[in-house]
C-alpha cells in the first residue's frame, strides 16, 4: 500500500528504477556483462572505443585490460550480496536487542544500551579498520564488522519505537489479557514498527554498500581480483590524473545506487506520513 503510494512520486519512482537496475545487474551479471570481468585484454582502452582486436569497450578497460563495464556489473553482485547479507544480520541482532530493551526496560535495557553506546562511540570507520585489521579482509569478516557496527544503531531505533508502541493501549490491552511477552513483541510491537524500519533499512543497505566501497577504496576490501567498486577506485586512483574514467565510473555506480535507495526511502517515509494523516 505504502509502496504504491510512494511510487506515485516521480523522485521515488526514479529511485526505485535505479535500485531495480542494480539488483538486476547483480542477479543476471553473467547475462548482462559483455565480457568476463577477470580476463585481461588490452590495457587502458578509452571509453566508447574499440580495442586493437575490434572489441567495443563501452566504459573502457583498466590497466590490466579488464572491461570496466563488466567489472561494474559483476561489482553490483558483490555489493548487493554482501551489503544485503550484512544489513540483514545487523537487523536481526538490532531487532532482537531493541525489542527486548524497549519491552522489558530496566536492567536488560541498561546493559544493552550501554553496550550500544560503547560501540557507537567509535567513528564507524575506525571500528571497521580495527576489525578488518585484526581479522583480515573477507566477505564473512565484512558481514561481521557491519553487523557489529550497525546493529547498535538499529537497536536504538527499534528500542525507541518499542518504547513508544509499548505505551499504546493495545499493548496494555494485551498485557492485561495475560498475553506472553514474546507474542506481544512479535505480534503487537514489531508489526507496528515496520514503517520506519523499512525506511531505515533502505538507507542502511546503501550505507553498507558505501562502507564496502570505502573499505575497498582504502585497500581493506574484498581480496582481489573480486570485482568491487571501491577496490576499482583504489586501483585506478594512481592513474586518475591521466585516465579519470578509471575512477569516475565506479564512483557513479556507488553514488547512483545510494541515490536510488535514498529517494526510495524518502518516498516511503513521505507516503507513510500521508497514510497516517489520512
Amino acid at each position: 500500500m505504502t509502496l504504491f503510494r510512494a511510487l506515485r512520486r516521480p523522485t521515488a519512482a526514479f529511485g526505485a528504477v535505479v535500485v531495480v537496475i542494480w539488483v538486476a545487474c547483480a542477479l543476471f551479471a553473467g547475462l548482462l556483462a559483455p565480457y568476463d570481468p577477470l580476463i585481461s585484454t588490452t590495457a587502458l582502452v578509452e571509453p566508447f572505443s574499440r580495442g586493437p582486436d575490434g572489441k567495443l569497450f563501452l566504459l573502457g578497460t583498466d590497466m590490466l585490460g579488464r572491461d570496466i563495464l563488466s567489472r561494474l556489473i559483476f561489482g553490483a553482485r558483490t555489493v548487493v550480496l554482501w551489503a544485503g547479507l550484512a544489513t540483514a544480520t545487523a537487523y536481526v541482532v538490532g531487532i532482537v536487542g531493541g525489542l527486548a530493551a524497549g519491552f522489558y526496560r530496566g536492567a536488560v535495557d541498561q546493559i544493552l544500551s550501554f553496550a550500544a553506546n560503547v560501540i557507537l562511540s567509535f567513528p564507524v570507520l575506525v571500528l571497521y579498520i580495527l576489525i578488518i585489521v585484526t581479522l583480515g579482509s573477507s566477505g564473512a569478516n565484512i558481514v561481521l564488522a557491519v553487523t557489529f557496527a550497525s546493529a547498535p544503531a538499529i537497536f536504538r531505533i527499534v528500542r525507541a519505537l518499542a518504547i513508544e508502541i509499548r505505551e499504546q493501549d493495545f499493548v496494555n490491552a494485551a498485557i492485561t489479557q495475560g498475553e506472553g511477552a514474546i507474542r506481544i513483541m512479535l505480534f503487537d510491537i514489531l508489526p507496528n514498527a515496520t514503517g520506519p524500519l523499512v525506511v531505515d533499512a533502505c538507507l542502511r543497505v546503501g550505507y553498507t554498500a558505501i562502507t564496502i566501497g570505502i573499505l575497498g577504496f582504502l585497500g581493506l576490501g574484498l581480496p582481489p581480483p573480486t570485482p568491487d567498486w571501491g577496490t576499482m577506485v583504489n586501483e585506478g586512483r594512481a592513474m586518475a590524473m591521466v585516465f579519470p574514467y578509471l575512477v569516475i565510473f565506479p564512483c557513479l555506480a556507488i553514488s547512483s545506487l545510494m541515490l536510488g535507495l535514498s529517494l526510495l526511502a524518502d518516498g516511503l517515509r513521505e507516503a507513510s506520513r500521508e497514510g497516517s494523516r489520512a
Binding site: Q168, D169, F170, N172, A173, A174, I175, T176, Q177, G178, E179, G180, F187, D188, P191, N192
Partner: peptide
Amino acid sequence: MRRRRLVQMIFQDPHGSLNPNRTVGDVLTR
C-alpha cells in the same frame, strides 16, 4: 498471568487501543 482475565480494561483512546495490524476477528478470538 492466570488471573489477568478477571480484570479487563476499556481504554480511552479509540485509535490507540486496537492493534492496527490485526483484524477485529483475530483480536476477539485471541
